[in-house]
Design a binder for these strands. Structure first.
Length: 183
DNA sequence: CCGGCGATCCTCT
DNA sequence: GAGGATCGCCGGC
């Protein structure tokens, strides 16, 4: 994955991240997944975004260098993971909402504590848990060589169509068609 | 299969 | 001091 891929309009990047792969390397082993669901969140022009107002300690990564991982805690119990992506000088990130296991299925099952296989990675909190994401990965460089725990890679081209819908679980700007789902 | 609800804690106002 | 880019359990149909 090249930084220029992420240095474009956040909505375009969200759509094109479908089929791209995440590689998680830990002491326990290697996990590889293909991204199947994303949402775009922009800056001051997106009322649903964490970055719709001033820079704060939490949202600061969304204003910075593309290719960083933005990790945050939601509802007091789940982590969500985002890829910082925006035009040069812009603001934004792509929420990764679901993925399909490619390698390390046993590790994913362990991380998910016995959830049925069809519920392993089908939601943002489940994806983060399945990959074994922790808050110390906040700000990690997904494009680093060599990889630093989590890496983003180009995957095989998508086979099927892309479903475009409203974003899930928000109460502002509910009609923006910025959610992308692949099978 | 579907809708409702509680858990749980960090962040910003 | 409120509310959130969620999840899984429960009960009802």
């Amino acid at each position: 994955m090249d930084a220029s891929f992420l240095e474009r309009d956040t909505v375009t990047v969200a759509k094109e991240l479908l089929g791209c792969e995440l590689v998680r390397q830990t002491e326990a082993g290697l996990i590889r997944v293909a991204i199947t669901e994303t949402e775009a969140y922009q800056g001051s022009d997106d009322p649903a975004s964490h970055a719709c107002r001033a820079v704060t300690p939490r949202n600061r990564l969304m204003f910075g260098e593309v290719g960083r991982l933005y990790v945050y805690l939601i509802y007091g119990m789940h982590l969500c993971i985002n890829v910082v992506a925006h035009e040069p000088g812009g603001v934004g990130a792509v929420l990764l909402r679901a993925a399909r296991p490619l390698e390390g299925l046993e590790l994913i099952r362990d991380n998910r504590g016995g959830a049925p296989d069809r519920n392993l990675l089908n939601g943002p909190g489940k994806l983060a848990q399945g990959l074994g994401i922790t808050r110390d990965l906040n700000g990690c460089d997904l494009l680093a060589e060599p990889p630093q725990g989590l890496a983003l890679e180009r995957g095989a081209p998508l086979a099927g169509p892309i479903l475009v819908t409203r974003r899930i679980g928000i109460t502002k700007a509910v009609d923006y068609p910025w959610r992308f789902v692949a099978e």
